[in-house]
Amino acid sequence: MNKCSSVFGQILQIFNRYEFERMVRKTQSEKGSKGFSSWDQFVAMLFCQLGQAHSLREICGGLATCLGKIKHLGVKGAPHRSTLAYANEHRPWELYQNMFYALLEKCQPLQKGKKKFRFKNQLLSLDASTIELCSTLFDWARFRQTKGAVKLHLLLDHEGYLPVFALITEGCVHEVNVARELTFPKGSILAIDRGYTDYALFAHWTDTGVYFVTRQKDNASYRIIEERTVPHHRNILHDEIITFTGYYAKQHYPGPVRRIEVDDRDNNRVIVLLTNHLEFGATTIARIYKDRWQIETFFKTIKQNLKIKTFVGTSQNALFIQIWTALITILLLKYLQFQSTRAWSLSTLVALLRYNLFTYRDLWTWINHPFEVPVIVPNVTVIPIPFQ
């Protein structure tokens, strides 16, 4: 490792440049380009996320003020605003999508052993979050009469809490339509909110060996066919096997399903859960649904700590590039978390990285002891420039 490389430069070394160039050729992202490479564009957009830049002016100005430090980033120099804006508008966002999945493959081996539950089944959460936009500036993303929006769909693996699937759609696309297109490993457990209620989809998952845990809709009609014993001194009120009696529900899902009532004492309410898993204890089912909150926390972390609510471009391509770069940044932070012996929170790691992006420190020592690693002073010769 180059000891005189900045922290930002060492972060960029996580990416395989040969693999990056292969993806550039595959997506033809440099077709017709003149000097400004895809790597230069990626470095600028990653700096937007890690440096919390609010505009193209801040991105280009922030890189320009680093003087000689950006030579360790593999770029020729700070881009002009018009150059970066044109690249974000015209170069395919699919390059950033491919980079996300390439980095995901690097992170997944590091998450092994970071599992909260004892069962061997893969636990996944599926959810979507709406990102509101100004309908005047983003006229292509019209959501309602006076609002614009896009929707970010995520599938979260609870072993390491990594996003293993992401999709950006228009705001009017319903979550269920995306769920119907996905396939899940046999034996996996899917924790979802009741917005995904689709009895035909539930039947398909049951037939393919996929378990689901969700909340029951308030207007669901059913018939109890079996009462199970509830555990003592727990928050389980009822554990029942039911069949649906509603016309369409019974037609699409004729088989038995499990209904569990959970006393949510923290919020003074009763949560009613539905699942096709008939063997796990009721307490385990309740814990599975409670852990679904991690995907809500994930969305909150992205929106609060990365640039995903304000955008540096108004075209669809530029917006997609910025969101995919935010997802790449989250994976980078997860990668650093997995490699560190320190219990970092994502918000603290983002803040301290922002302050140290262009300091000369050994990154892999710094993430273990952030307040103890001294700055490395490069051995350089300063040539004075006479005042003109």
Rank of each mutant, 00 (worst) to 15 (best):
L278D: 10
F358P: 13
T243V: 15
I14K: 01
E372N: 10
L56D: 03
A78T: 01
N177C: 13
T130A: 09
T136M: 02
K147S: 09
V312Q: 02
L156P: 11
E30Y: 00
I14C: 04
Q52I: 05
S37D: 03
H252S: 13
T365L: 09
D266T: 08
K300M: 03
I330G: 00
R144V: 01
K31N: 10
Q216N: 06
S315K: 06
R22H: 15
A102H: 06
M45K: 01
H233P: 00
F20Y: 11
G281E: 15
Y222P: 04
N379T: 07
I271M: 15
K106S: 10
C107Q: 02
G74W: 00
C60Q: 05
P185H: 03
A351Y: 05
K34S: 12
P79S: 10
F298D: 06
D198A: 12
P185V: 08
T381K: 14
G187T: 13
N98F: 00
Q13F: 02
E89D: 10
L352G: 00
N356H: 15
I70P: 01
S347M: 02
G171Y: 08
H158M: 08
V75R: 08
C48Y: 04
P109R: 01
T284Q: 09
Y360E: 04
L73W: 02
A203T: 06
K31A: 10
L133R: 11
N219D: 13
L73N: 09
D193F: 01
W293I: 11
E240M: 13
K186H: 07
G62E: 02
W93D: 07
V230Y: 03
S5C: 05
F387L: 08
E19G: 13
N276K: 03
E19H: 11
C60E: 05
E226F: 07
N317H: 07
I288A: 05
T208V: 11
A203Y: 06
R57Q: 09
C107V: 14
N2W: 12
V350E: 00
T310H: 14
G281H: 12
H153P: 02
Y247F: 04
A220H: 10
D157F: 10
L332N: 00
F371S: 12
L104C: 09
R228N: 14
R215I: 13
I321S: 13
G313V: 06
Q145P: 00
T297D: 08
Y335K: 10
F15C: 03
R228E: 13
F20R: 01
L346D: 04
F119R: 14
T65A: 06
T229N: 06
Q122N: 05
A149W: 08
A282P: 12
A179K: 03
E94C: 01
R269P: 00
K334H: 13
N267M: 08
T325Q: 07
V382S: 03
S221M: 05
H153L: 08
N356A: 03
D239Y: 09
F387R: 09
A85Y: 01
K307P: 01
N356V: 02
F202Y: 14
T214D: 09
F280P: 00
Q111D: 04
V173W: 01
A179R: 04
W39T: 05
V382M: 11
